[in-house]
Design a protein around this nucleic acid. Structure first.
Length: 476
RNA sequence: GUGGUUUUAGCUCAGUUGGUUAGAGCGCCUGAUUGUGGUUCAGGAGGUCGUGGGUUCGAGCCCCAUAUUCCACCCCA
């Protein structure tokens, strides 16, 4: 077989032991918070039937789904339809259009997010689950996107969703989950943006163009990037009039505290029942928040801001929308979510509402790395290495090795009687904080040498004393 | 999917108008130190210059294709 130069597929990464320890630290931190708020873990398969995923993420999203080629002689079984034969193919003359060919050669695809598989799960397990059902899920997802910084083709999402509960308490709790998890990870300056699709719908309605809500939102979402003028241009390109743009300006440029923004919006949206309902929802969320975190002042909490220019996943969100950004480094959003009134509807279970959030673990990793926020404790490897002088010392060390492990101390014995220099260099490279030296002298006295690799100090202790001391040092 | 950018030692990067044997720092290996790492000193190994074509007497450098990285758009975690 021809030798092939080793390489990674575009947008994928290997994770070394140290990276895995840090990643696990992130997952564990988020998991702990999810569990604290009553969410329970599920997992779903890496790939789903193609039909489960297509049509859920919009045209753009569909293009980014990784499809899995059928096994066997799929080509033999693929038969063009009359329609394919009559429409002129762009290239070649196999009789297919790429759209009609796809379902014939691929019937499976890698999951694109965790929300749609969750919706499928809920529908399939509706008779076993008790509503409201709160689940979290930490698994990789795949997108055939063009990679960039903080954008990978394989990455982990940490999702928490609840279905079967209309209560806005869920939304409020998600804000708290974000605050708690991100703070626990050491982030100090981040913004949780909140908006409501109904407010956006109300605005579009007042302009007399409810059908253009997506265009409107996509345009004003770019305010940060292209400025007011850019947004105005984009709005006009997307079918709005100069007059519409004038009416929109005060809304787009809305400033002040959440309270002030809400007060102004209330006036603007007086004529829209939908819009007012959106405002009422946001107000309720803020009210819950203030009751849940009285010390922080709730409504004035700087971490949660009403942002009317926030647009997200408009394909299925219907109520509150969230997005989390860190202000400490340049990075896309590190989390997002929202409410969807009828996610399970597309799988035949009508009228079940859901709301959820997602953490982008890989982006959080990049942020923590850039800020140097991983605590020393995040990388917890071997605590103590026992040196290996010769065969006799090795045999002497084995019971001690197990004694350490029985006490929960991660310990290893250097596997060969290499030069001590090499053994210590190994401990150093692995950041092992302690080394036990056992030579002729130690075996005779029964007092082992314990070397602290950080200070270089050595002391002589019996095996029992030593185990006790290392056990106590674990917590530090 | 569109436009641009990057790729040279394990890592981070130099490399002049195309010209002998492609360099540095860090890391790695060996020794000074027979039972002491992280400091110091001496020595050493390591490259098909992303890959495949082409131009040329001669290519790391020029041309074409392709992969990859990062960036902008699109979209998103």
């Amino acid at each position: 077989m021809a030798q092939i130069k080793p390489s990674l597929a575009k947008g994928t990464r290997d994770f070394s032991p140290e990276e895995m320890e840090k990643r696990t630290y992130i997952f564990d931190t988020i998991r702990t918070v999810f569990r604290k708020y009553g969410y329970r873990e599920i997992q779903t398969p890496s790939f789903e039937n193609l039909g489960t995923l297509t049509g859920k993420y919009g045209d753009e999203g569909d293009k980014l789904i990784f499809k899995i080629l059928n096994s066997g002689d799929f080509w033999e079984k693929a038969v063009p339809t009359d329609r394919d034969l009559h429409s002129a193919p762009k290239s070649g003359s196999n009789g297919f259009s790429s759209k009609s060919l796809l379902p014939l050669i691929a019937e499976k695809a890698l999951r694109y997010d965790l929300t749609v598989p969750f919706a499928r799960y809920v529908v399939m397990h509706q008779n076993e689950i008790t509503l409201p059902f709160k689940r979290y899920q930490i698994q990789p997802v795949w997108r055939a996107d063009r990679p960039q910084k903080g954008r990978y083709r394989e990455f982990y999402q940490c999702d928490a969703d609840v279905v079967g509960s209309e209560s806005l308490l869920n939304e409020a709790e998600f804000v708290l989950i974000y605050q708690e998890a991100l703070s626990s990870l050491g982030l100090t300056d981040f913004t949780i943006k909140i908006n409501n699709r109904k407010i956006l719908a109300g605005i579009a309605e007042l302009l007399g163009k409810p059908e253009l809500i997506v265009d409107m939102t996509v345009a004003i979402d770019k305010l940060d990037k292209i400025g007011l003028e850019g947004v105005s241009n984009e709005l006009i390109v997307r079918g709005f009039t100069e007059g519409d743009v004038e009416k929109l300006k005060p809304v787009i440029l809305l400033k002040g505290t959440n309270e002030e923004k809400l007060a102004r919006l209330k006036k603007v949206l007086e004529g829209s029942e939908t819009g007012l309902r959106g405002i009422a929802e946001i107000e309720t969320v803020f009210e819950y928040l203030s009751l849940l975190s009285p010390a922080d002042g709730g409504l004035e909490n700087p971490d949660c801001q009403l942002d009317i220019t926030l647009a997200r996943g408009l394909n299925y969100y219907t109520g509150c929308i969230f997005e989390v950004k860190t202000n400490q480094v340049a990075m896309g959003s590190i989390g997002g979510g929202g409410r969807y009134d009828d996610l399970t509807g597309m799988f035949g279970l009508k009228g079940l509402t859901g709301v959820g959030i997602s953490f982008g673990a890989d982006r959080i990793y990049d942020v923590l790395e850039e800020l140097g926020l991983f605590p020393a404790g995040a990388v917890q490897g071997t605590r103590v290495l026992i040196s290996n002088f010769d065969e006799k010392a090795e045999r002497y060390a084995l019971p001690i090795l197990q004694q350490l492990r029985k006490n929960g101390i991660a310990a290893e014995l250097y596997p060969t009687a290499a030069k001590l220099k090499k053994q210590l260099a190994y401990a150093d490279a692995r950041h092992i904080p302690y080394v036990i030296l056992i030579g002729e002298e130690e075996m005779q006295s029964g007092l082992l040498s314990l070397k602290n690799m950080q200070t270089g100090e050595q002391q002589k202790l019996s095996a029992n004393e030593l185990t006790g001391q290392l056990f106590l040092a674990q917590g530090l």
